[in-house]
Design a protein around this nucleic acid. Sequence first.
DNA 1: CGTCGAATTGATGACCCTCAAAGTTAGTGG
DNA 2: CCACTAACTTTGAGGGTCATCAATTCGACG
Lengths: 251, 251
Amino acid sequence: MAKRRKRSPVELKPVEPHMCDIPLRLKILQRLPFFTSLTAQEITEINTLFREVGFEAQESIYHAGDPAIRLYVVAAGIVKIMRHALNGQEILLDILTSGEFFGSLSLTDDDTYSDTAIAQTAACTLSISKSDFRSILARYPTVALAILDITSKRLHEAHETIRQISAHTVEERTAHTLVKLAEKLGEPHDVGLLIQTPLSREDLAGMVSSTPESVSRIISQFQKADLIDTGRQWIAITNLPRLREVANISD
Amino acid sequence: MAKRRKRSPVELKPVEPHMCDIPLRLKILQRLPFFTSLTAQEITEINTLFREVGFEAQESIYHAGDPAIRLYVVAAGIVKIMRHALNGQEILLDILTSGEFFGSLSLTDDDTYSDTAIAQTAACTLSISKSDFRSILARYPTVALAILDITSKRLHEAHETIRQISAHTVEERTAHTLVKLAEKLGEPHDVGLLIQTPLSREDLAGMVSSTPESVSRIISQFQKADLIDTGRQWIAITNLPRLREVANISD
DNA sequence: CGTCGAATTGATGACCCTCAAAGTTAGTGG
DNA sequence: CCACTAACTTTGAGGGTCATCAATTCGACG
């Protein structure tokens, strides 16, 4: 079997600052799952409370331990949420795309972030101060309910992750993670369902709570079984149904 | 070393139905962390929406897969929240005491419970229908904010658990779990800081994502090191500071 | 006192982490 | 356009932790 050299099929769209001009900001805010109930008038008003910041790929948005004062929304690009262990190991808790929020939600939380947010790709974020956001929640109960829904859904997912780590092998967890990523970020491509973000073995290891080496072995195995196609920093799924079987997905 | 026979120092207070009479119900509701902002008048009104149900020890309150229609509050006793894996392994996600809530929060959630709630001791619960609770949230924004705070705090804890499982050994996790339990349920006692709930090795195994056998070995080891005192279905901590060291607790 | 479930303890092996070295790929500058 | 470097990835060997299975002991309760 001749080995062909592979180039990454991932296309990185540069996120320019001007991407977040006023009309686009309004459009993004309007589309947020928790602002859908608001009128255009109200959105315009709320828009003035948001500050816009762009980040380059791999740039950190905030670090664990920083004073937690802002709530962020991903306008464009992809952001990863991490948590460090004392032994240096890094856990990747979540990968967020346009329209998802992160950062400081709770007033009673410790006043420092407990995790770290890093721009996985070049990204544009909108952020609002904790207190401004609180007053929005107090003013518009439907928004608060929507945020509550999303948060409790994330809690369910976290619980599901706990179950995953406890009860499944690295192989199963890796398959499961790939399926989830494909559902969230997958784009049809001639190499298969391509996960549209640069994704290293180390990132994957952080998601399945393992090591880059172990993930690499599993990935190679998947590739030999023709479940996926992969290269440096990219993965495409060529046989989603069978990958699901390996993942033994129940939910 | 002469082995003395040990009797369990855990005292189980029977929870009788009449414990939850009207005045007590009001008192419990008033004390709920998310209802503190309401007036006595409002509490009395809300009280009528709650239904009271008692459970015997080990009785199940609801099962994963049941239609998710109610939100529960622990009035008295202790409730454990579990999640089953397909391979039969059971994860213990949380242990709840008086004043904590569980069950169905989110309207957009799947319409079935994703976990199982079991009365660890005899317990008395107050429950309210999902829609009634929603209307309370919509009417009293401060309540919604309080619920959001609690939920996002639980999300943080779940993330912390994920980090724990990934980065620490069973020994460290066990120590950590014991410290947390002692903080939450510990009562001073002549045998040490007693964890006031019948707690089997299997329960502990479910909390640290391990097996009863492994937990038993660790527990024996702790006992030899004079960190704890233990017997069938009970554990008391005799040296909390050193147990903390073993847990390597950072938060 | 006898019974049953819980807890302990031991032996074995699977899984996967660690350490180490070699192979690949992307990006850089001549 | 090509060489070169640095980072990512792969692959191998070895060992440690922990799950599994099994047998015994212990404790609670009738």
